[in-house]
Design a protein around this nucleic acid. Structure first.
Lengths: 155, 155
DNA sequence: GTCAACTCGGACAGGACGGGTCCGTGGCAC
DNA sequence: GTGCCACGGACCCGTCCTGTCCGAGTTGAC
């Protein structure tokens, strides 16, 4: 999985509840990561409709939906793409004992197993929202942590 | 995910129930794939202890355990490695508002979510065995399909 | 016992994909 | 008008996957 997914999730968490837009450079400085590469990730989030960008002076990024309506899977698919990790190459249709096409109407058993595992993975990520993550941060690091982060981003 | 995983799984399925060892070149011809590259995948399976190799004339590969005791996860981890897809880089400990080390005893919430999804994926793959796959092949493509494949490999 | 053929095993290149960076363009506020 | 900021594309680089090769070891036959 791409390392940018982690950055995108952190950005969404600190952006949750932030009324004013936050510039990409500010987010990069806050997380101490490369500004140019984080900008690319934010572009992907914007293209997926998760964040809205306002241009011009005092512009920046902000969430388009309430954090409770953005799942972790949304962010992962926006940055890493939604293609499944496994792609069946139809090995059964090759070789000296190749299966005839009329027996290949359903996907082969290996592809079905991989697909089921992929769905389980996605369901697990779909069950958690950005709001859940933000609440967890408040519980483990203290409720004032997130508020201080948002205040720093507004300066 | 590596494409070699698919090849390794197909090899394990046709190897299930085959008493005599099968040479790698035979497996490659049967599946119509590159012999040298398939040999590499079989080496990985051998290193993981899933298949046993016998050298010399009339040598080849065979399963070390009954197919019901080899899970799909075993094959996937043998070829693709067992490292989780997500690796937490501890973003919370960087930047101007870095969290102090005494608050980072537990993994951050993002890492926990990713880890849970990874476990769900692995559990789904662990629930299916090579014997299950072989049975599914017999059910969808006819019971004689697997027997003919094994007979062809013995020639 | 010797030979020969066949097998696996690891070491070795080529290439594709994605991570990461940079700059020019267009739009918004002041 | 001027400065700031997001957007899009082109570009370079490292890494992993794909693919190939030759040597070591073993077996079976004679």
């Amino acid at each position: 999985m791409s390392g940018g997914v982690e950055w995108g999730l952190h950005c969404c968490v600190v952006l949750s509840g932030s009324g004013e837009p936050v510039p990409a450079a500010k987010l990069a400085e806050f997380h101490d990561v490369s500004p140019s590469y984080l900008a690319k990730q934010l572009q992907l989030l914007s293209r997926a409709g998760l964040v809205r960008s306002t241009q011009g002076q005092s512009g920046g990024y902000g969430l388009t939906r309430p954090p409770a309506e953005i799942t972790v899977l949304d962010v992962v698919e926006a940055i890493d793409g939604s293609r499944p990790a496994f792609r069946c190459t139809e090995v059964r249709r090759r070789g000296p004992l190749a299966a005839p096409p009329e027996k290949c109407l359903t996907p082969c058993s290996i592809a079905r197993v991989m697909d089921a595992a992929d769905r389980a993975w996605r369901e697990s990520l779909r069950a958690v929202t950005i709001a859940d993550l933000a609440g967890e941060v408040g519980r483990t690091s203290g409720p004032e942590t997130l508020a201080r982060a948002r205040a720093w981003l507004q300066t």
